[in-house]
Amino acid sequence: MNSMQMWSSRFRKFFLDNKFVLFLLVLLLIGLNILVFMKTSFIFTPLIVLVKTIALPIILTGVVYYLLNPIVNLLERFRVKRIFSILLLYIVIIGMITVTIVSIIPFLQAQMMSLFHNLPKYVDTVEDQIRQLTGSNFITQAQKNMNFNVSELVSKASSQATKILESTFTGVGTFLGALTEIIISIVTVPFILFYLLKDGKKLPDYFLKFIPNKFREHTHIVLHEMNHRLSSYILGQIIVSFCIGVLLLIGYLIIGLDYALLLAIIAACTSVVPYLGPTIAITPAIVIALVTSPVMLLKLIIVWTVVQLIEGKFISPQVMGKNLHIHPITIIFVLLTAGKLFSVVGIIVAIPTYAVLKVITTHLFDWFKMRSNLYKEEKV
């Protein structure tokens, strides 16, 4: 018996009471779990398919929910029943979508068709400007040596893009066949959104029922902070993007830049992605301005500088504030990594996902520090 107690004491001393050995055992268990998951991943195929199926509707519904929920809450304060507020918002949104389809979409289609048709001319103009600047025919020589013609390639690409665009706008059946999954997701959004707006406040309490009593208070704090970060980011980023699009449209119209509305919409959509979005948005505007004239390029630079100053100094600080507390370098790395792993969708959801994970990780680390003795300050 004494011998058993002695071995038990040694085992506890060298393994259970040794934090480094315990850390290695935890790593070993994590590695074994990963290995088992890799060998039996086929078991989780139905779950993966389910997640892929519901991911897009949930993301779209979440974005729209954070946009409309403040309006519903505001109407509720004025003693308008929540269900009536939701129905009123649906009527307004349907009206706005109808007006957009009837009035704006045909105009955008005409601008896009014109842009595709004029691409070969733009390339020829750029070539002429480069020849004038360099005083040589190195582009023509390079085309002969590499056995290709830039104008011909652009012309083919332009005609192909025009055909695709025409089939997209006119061939509704083909469009629906190619994008069935996206269409189904968009169709399901209003139904999910209705119940989420109606009963969304009850979800945290329902979720907390599955959490042990001693963790409920802290879990409630974490959920509240996650909800605050997500709502602040999504609502703020969309408002900022809308403001950028409007300011650029006004600036483009003032300087007389071609395809002003199309370029402003592209800038507003890409501005949803911080830092990288504006860089992508300005590229087509620079090409069109450069082809038009050097003076137009200078005007474009002035417009973009003014808009970026207004956005950086006035709009973003007021709308976004500093709710995320994420360093710009971290944002860039997160965007690049998410884009590499999950393409465009990853870039769009990278920052809010990182914000949620940061909240969870921070609270878990605080809980770990509270439970362990590793971070207690030593008294001198």
Rank of each mutant, 00 (worst) to 15 (best):
I93N: 07
G173N: 09
I184T: 10
L29V: 14
R10A: 10
E152L: 08
T353R: 08
I34D: 01
I351M: 10
S41K: 12
K39V: 08
T98N: 00
V51R: 12
V49F: 07
K369F: 06
S155C: 03
I351Q: 04
N69T: 08
F215D: 11
V306H: 03
L165V: 05
K156M: 03
L24E: 02
K202A: 08
L22A: 13
S159D: 10
M96R: 03
G135C: 07
V307S: 03
I164L: 11
V51I: 15
L35Q: 05
S85A: 11
Q111W: 06
K369N: 12
V172N: 09
I83T: 02
L324N: 01
V291W: 00
I43S: 06
G171K: 10
T362R: 13
F42N: 14
L235D: 05
L29C: 12
L133P: 00
E152Q: 06
V359A: 04
E217F: 06
P120Q: 10
Y90E: 02
Q109A: 13
I329T: 08
F14E: 11
I130N: 02
K52P: 01
L16P: 02
T168P: 00
Q132P: 00
V287R: 02
I183H: 04
Y354D: 03
V273Y: 01
I86S: 04
M38T: 15
S151M: 03
V291Y: 00
K299Y: 08
L32G: 10
K81H: 02
M296G: 02
K299I: 01
I238Y: 12
E76P: 00
S3C: 02
V99F: 15
G236L: 09
S231Q: 14
L165A: 14
F15S: 14
S316C: 02
P274Y: 01
N145P: 00
G251S: 05
L68G: 01
I183M: 12
L165S: 13
V64K: 04
T219A: 15
I347C: 11
I280A: 10
I331A: 13
A157I: 02
Y233G: 13
P212L: 12
E311Q: 13
R82Y: 05
I254E: 03
S103R: 11
V72H: 03
V287E: 02
P120F: 14
L108K: 09
V72W: 01
G62T: 11
E377K: 15
V356L: 15
N18G: 10
I254F: 12
I54P: 01
I288R: 02
A355V: 06
I254D: 03
M296A: 09
K81T: 00
S41G: 05
K81R: 08
I282F: 07
M96P: 04
T98P: 00
F342L: 12
E152N: 10
K52R: 14
A178T: 06
V334A: 14
V240K: 04
I288V: 11
P317V: 05
L257D: 03
E311S: 14
E181T: 15
I280D: 00
I86W: 03
I282H: 09
E377P: 00
R79E: 08
V344Q: 09
V126Y: 06
Q111E: 15
R77D: 14
K376Q: 14
T61S: 13
K369Y: 04
F37M: 14
G173T: 11
L24N: 04
T361N: 10
L47A: 15
K39Q: 14
V240Q: 07
I139M: 08
V334E: 09
